[in-house]
Design a protein around this nucleic acid. Structure first.
Length: 744
DNA sequence: GCCCGAAGTCTTTTT
DNA sequence: GACTTCGGGC
């Protein structure tokens, strides 16, 4: 046997060597569960002679999947590429792409994102004369999604409704929603799981096929599986029962999207033969951080009792600071990072700022920009949800799946083709009457009565799309996209607009183009054809966290939810205020388990930290336009006083901050900041351009600082250092790779 | 059919 | 505060 298993502790070894039958690994935060999983895979292949082809490992995010894949590649001798490592959603898509015709869908189905779902729901409400003042689209979709998480069909929902008028109405809307999805040959996120389960239940041969294929199944983050996902896994595993699930009930934070904590708490009931192994030694955090985490989570009642321990050093105390408002809070945090960086205490990527809601990112982003600190915001408005991106994607979707009415209707007038609402509703009526798709109705528009003058415009559009369709086969995705941009004049139009906004949009489009290129390359590497459907699918299933590149040196700003599974030497938990975190909703809720979920979220946050943890709060804060006064979060008070360092008085601290980092940065102050900053020589991996598209004397634009003139360019080891004199904020030095200056 | 400004709504968290 | 929707005017 190889000696790679010697580095594991005895509990971990036990988990690795237990290969047959159901196994539940209760893995506390930082207890090395990914190590266990990867070593377990290696052991299965190397020692047990299992064919890599027979192994399935499921994670929640693509990032987790690719990390696991990478680590498996490193320790598995051969054949690691045929191990199936992917997320629940991609796994299901791959299965459905091959077999969903058995359920009466077309195998080229489209995946609807939240935006698409909303548009569709709006449509349905209009059709069914539902008053959206009373039944909000959002809440309807939430109810439907929840039903799907629990594998409840429209029929079942109606039956459960009994005499309840409201519930019956929702059930009817749910039914109509499903019909529309099918008409559009589309699935929403939840359907991906639900339909796969349906497929398995209806087609025994398909299920058996996959049961034989996946003889060994592993599921990561098991505490976050919902009923549908559980059903999916247990169907797959029911033949061989070689199911290994890894999770931590204390880190269950996705109840709102249907995660059923019962799946982990009741695993031993469903699989009576299950072995249970606990991993309680933490390798990540200092003793103080771990003690704080243990103390906080101990306030929860619904949990499997356990206590993490570590052999690590005691470490520093938990820092807590309270500020007058959110600005000062952000200034402090960013100042601390800048300071630590200046003193050589770590790189930017060693720091993470974690908050409860996405909206809180803004202040930190602003301060980072002012301090010239590279950062990345994870989450918030999805890149692919931006208008210009969606427009172009809908062209691609139309080409890919002509049944997707939503996509066709979105682009029929983008750019303006002078086809109005009246015409569109006539086409829609005709399509409904004839029971054909919207696009097919357009193709036979001459048969539609009272279309009149618009006919020629519609014909123009149809010819245009048909032309693109005929090219789709031969073109790469990139070529197709560029053709669309050229023929529609999309970018030309934006260029003519010439505003701050339109320039940003063009930049986004450029990024989309490079994503098609990256997709092409990845396909070639894997030896898979880079199809249009494949590209659209990848985009639909991508999460923002997936784009975090561990080689890039930037501070990460994200929600606590996004931070799960990550670790950082230094963590800032900001906005620690009752009403923010725990959220107002959870405090007010009758169901005290809501508050417990928030506490688990806090536990997740604390345990992200390896060396240092800072919690901050503000006395007053702007929330949606008006000022709120919040108390310090109860979670802060649950950390034993002796573990906390309250620091100096805030008033004493302030001058030092404003000296270095306030917005009205006079030249001398900025110099101070930069003088002690030898960081261009260190690893600052922003890909260095071969040359810059501007030179000394050119006028350039910066996202935050506005317009300025380039004064100097110094070629550094990894990037160019550019000095710019800005109209508004004066002279600044910055790195070309990060500053993204645009010549104007 | 299209554009612009006023009013209304929202936010927890995400694949 | 930021984004979307709606209604009035052209």
């Amino acid at each position: 046997m190889r000696d790679i298993y010697n580095t594991l502790n005895s509990r971990q070894q036990e988990a690795v060597f237990h290969t047959e039958g159901p196994l539940l690994i209760l893995a506390g935060a930082g207890s090395g569960k990914t190590r266990v999983l990867t070593h377990r895979i290696a052991y299965l292949i190397d020692e047990k002679g299992v064919n890599p082809w027979n192994i399935l490992a499921i994670t929640f995010t693509n990032k987790a999947a690719s990390e696991m894949r990478e680590r498996v590649d490193k320790i598995v001798g051969f054949g690691s590429e045929s191990i199936w490592v992917s997320t629940f959603h991609s796994t299901c898509v791959r299965i459905l792409r091959r077999h969903i015709d058995r359920l009466g869908y077309d195998n080229s189905f489209t995946i609807y994102d939240t935006d698409d779902q909303k548009t569709l729901m709006k449509d349905i409400c209009r059709r069914l004369n539902v008053d959206t003042k009373i039944y909000k689209e959002r809440s309807l979709l939430a109810q439907i999604s929840h039903a799907k998480d629990e594998l409840i069909t429209p029929d079942e929902m109606e039956m459960n409704a009994a005499g309840d008028y409201n519930k019956k109405k929702v059930a009817a809307i749910y039914r109509e929603y499903q019909t529309s999805l099918r008409k559009n040959n589309a699935l929403d996120f939840d359907d991906l799981i639900v339909k796969t389960v349906e497929l398995f239940q209806n087609c025994g041969d398909v299920l058996e096929n996959y049961q034989e294929r996946f003889k060994y199944i592993m599921v990561d983050e098991y505490q976050d599986t919902n009923t549908a996902q559980f059903k999916f896994v247990s169907l797959l595993a029911s033949k061989y029962e070689n199911l290994c699930v890894v999770g931590d009930d204390d880190q269950s934070i996705y109840k709102f999207r249907g995660a059923n904590i019962g799946n982990i708490l009741g695993f031993e009931h469903v699989f009576p033969d299950a072995a249970v192994i606990r991993l309680e030694q933490n390798y990540r955090s200092t003793q103080n951080i771990l003690r704080a985490a243990n103390e906080v989570i101990a306030h929860n009642t619904a949990r499997k009792p356990k206590t993490l321990w570590t052999e690590n050093q005691e470490g520093e105390k938990i820092h807590f600071r309270q500020f007058m408002n959110g600005y000062e809070e952000a200034e402090y945090v960013v100042g601390e990072i800048a300071g630590a960086r200046r003193e050589g205490k770590g790189m930017y990527k060693d720091f993470a700022v974690l908050y409860r809601t996405n909206a809180q990112s803004r202040l930190f982003e602003e301060k980072c920009l002012l301090a010239n600190i590279p950062y990345k915001i994870v989450g918030g408005v999805n890149f692919y949800a931006r208008k210009e991106i969606k427009d172009l994607l809908c062209y691609l979707k139309t080409i890919d799946n002509a049944k997707d009415d939503l996509a066709v209707r979105r682009i029929i007038n983008v750019p303006k083709r002078g086809i109005g609402a009246t015409t569109l509703s006539r086409v829609q009526d005709y399509a409904d009457q004839m029971d054909i798709s919207f696009y097919d109705a357009l193709r036979v528009a001459e048969e539609i009565p009272s279309i009149g003058r618009s006919l020629s415009k519609i014909d123009g559009f149809v010819t245009f799309i048909q032309g693109l369709k005929s090219k789709a086969e031969a073109y790469t995705v990139r070529e197709l996209l560029e053709e669309i941009i050229r023929l529609t004049g999309y970018v030309t139009e934006l260029e003519a607009e010439d505003t701050e906004e339109s320039r940003a949009r063009i930049e986004n489009i450029d990024e989309l183009i490079s994503k098609t290129e990256a997709y092409q390359e990845a396909g070639e590497e894997r030896g898979e054809p880079a199809t249009l459907s494949g590209f659209l699918e990848e985009i639909a299933l991508i999460a923002d966290i997936d784009s975090v590149d561990p080689d890039q040196d930037y501070v990460l700003l994200m929600t606590l939810h996004s931070a799960k599974g990550l670790e950082f030497p230094n963590v800032f938990l900001v906005g620690m205020e009752d009403g923010i975190f725990p959220s107002y909703m959870s405090i007010m809720s009758d169901d005290c388990s809501d508050l417990e979920e928030e506490r688990r979220l806090c536990y997740v946050g604390i345990t992200r930290a390896m060396k240092e943890l800072t919690m901050t709060s503000a006395r007053q804060r702007m929330i949606r336009g008006d000022v709120q006064y919040n108390k310090v979060s109860r979670f802060v008070r649950e950390v034993p006083r002796e573990l906390v360092d309250l620091g100096y008085k805030v008033e004493e601290k302030k001058p030092k901050i404003s000296e270095s980092l306030t917005g009205d940065s006079s030249l001398s102050k900025m110099r101070q900041v930069f003088a002690a900053k030898p960081f261009q020589a260190t690893q600052f991996k922003v890909t260095k351009a071969d040359s810059l598209d501007y030179q000394i004397g050119d006028t350039v634009r910066h996202v935050k600082f506005g317009v300025g003139v380039v004064k100097n360019i110094v070629e550094g080891g990894r990037d160019y250092e550019v000095t710019v004199d800005f109209d508004k904020v004066g002279v600044k030095k910055m790195f070309a790779g990060f500053a993204k200056l645009k010549k104007i």
